[in-house]
Design a protein around this nucleic acid. Sequence first.
DNA 1: TAAAAACGTGTATATACTACGCAAATATAG
DNA 2: CTATATTTGCGTAGTATATACACGTTTTTA
Lengths: 231, 231
Amino acid sequence: MSAHHQNIKIAVDAVVFGYQKSKLYVLLIQQKFGSQNDYWALPGGLVQEDEALIEAVKRELKEETNVSVNYLEQLYTFGDDISRDPRNRVISVAYFALVDPSKLTLIADTDAEKVSWVEIDKIPNLAFDHNEIIRLGIERLKNKVTYQPIGFDLLPTKFLFSQLENLYNTIIGKEIDRRNFRKKMMSFGFITETEEYATKKTGRPAKLYAFNTAEYKRLEKEGIHFEIKLV
Amino acid sequence: MSAHHQNIKIAVDAVVFGYQKSKLYVLLIQQKFGSQNDYWALPGGLVQEDEALIEAVKRELKEETNVSVNYLEQLYTFGDDISRDPRNRVISVAYFALVDPSKLTLIADTDAEKVSWVEIDKIPNLAFDHNEIIRLGIERLKNKVTYQPIGFDLLPTKFLFSQLENLYNTIIGKEIDRRNFRKKMMSFGFITETEEYATKKTGRPAKLYAFNTAEYKRLEKEGIHFEIKLV
DNA sequence: TAAAAACGTGTATATACTACGCAAATATAG
DNA sequence: CTATATTTGCGTAGTATATACACGTTTTTA
């Protein structure tokens, strides 16, 4: 323990995924100031002296994009590349969140010049190592989808089963059998069908479904696993 | 981004698990100096200015315990409790490793007064939030055991099938059916039986088995999953 | 009024998991 | 020297889960 004059900065970054119209997006900003202000980047910034890491992410997200998220999970801490930030040694703790963009209004506040949802497969070269952070976020998401009902966060409160199907198809990048998928999903018991119908442009009208959060938590507490095989 | 005078220290800690004689251990040290030098603690310390996080853990482990580990994985970054270290604001990136204690020689070097393997269910009150870090490490281990062949790291190069069984029983804390476990394990194809036998005190002599790392990596590359159900 | 689009179910087959029982090879006790 | 205890190394039958696959229903549009 020799680092008497340690001068490493600590930052947080948020990988916020949104899903809309069969497409997966990440929340990105363009900063007003800084060396990398030409590049798009993840929302984030330095942690304050008296601030919990999780509070720092929430604050930065709110400040830079106007987005509030209740559930953020730690993704990874990036601190092996000494010069990931060309100015100083900065270690960044990356967080991960899932939201339904339709429930949010983006506002480029304070530090941010622009804010935008950027489609997953149209992400440009980003500032710092943010492309790598997102890559890891996508990996986590693909993994998570196999054992957690991510639809809770990514879909509207009431949704069509076809939307849930599409969500899974989009994330894992392949088609799942519609009938088997529905059977499996419904077998868990935390999805309830509502009495409402959605009339679409064409085809038979579909029932609207909803996640039963209480039931999900109960089942989770019982230690039940919600694994879904997506070979 | 207002933290112009950020003065947060960054540290690393290592949760190193060892397995021997049907028991699971964690590597702990007692420090010579510092405010918490009466308490046992995880090996670790402050990161140096020009040092990758992973290098910091390896260095601290070597310095404090003489242990060298090739594979360390990030566990979690502890930085929500502002006063987890009563002196300064310190954020710690915790790492996770699995080793076979019989392959190592512990030496309490430099900063450490004592080093010891401490049995998982006999861990005392530790310094800082290290009990919490270990708790999370155990959780990770229990999880990991279901989809990764942790025996690679925790067992001797050549081992008995009963040792592998005991390892799993110990980690998950319950008995698995011996015959089904063997069938499943062998079906993966990365365990090979050697020609050697181990004569034991009693009972039929048992074959020695070995992990085939090359084959494991090949299968892993093919994206094959090694899930083992441990209800 | 026919065709297209999307919804909602059911069944047969294959695969995987679970629960068991028994013989073989050794050490030890009598 | 023989019987018993102990640990190893299979094998099989029954159950549950996953996969593959087809058709009628309800709507819009041409």
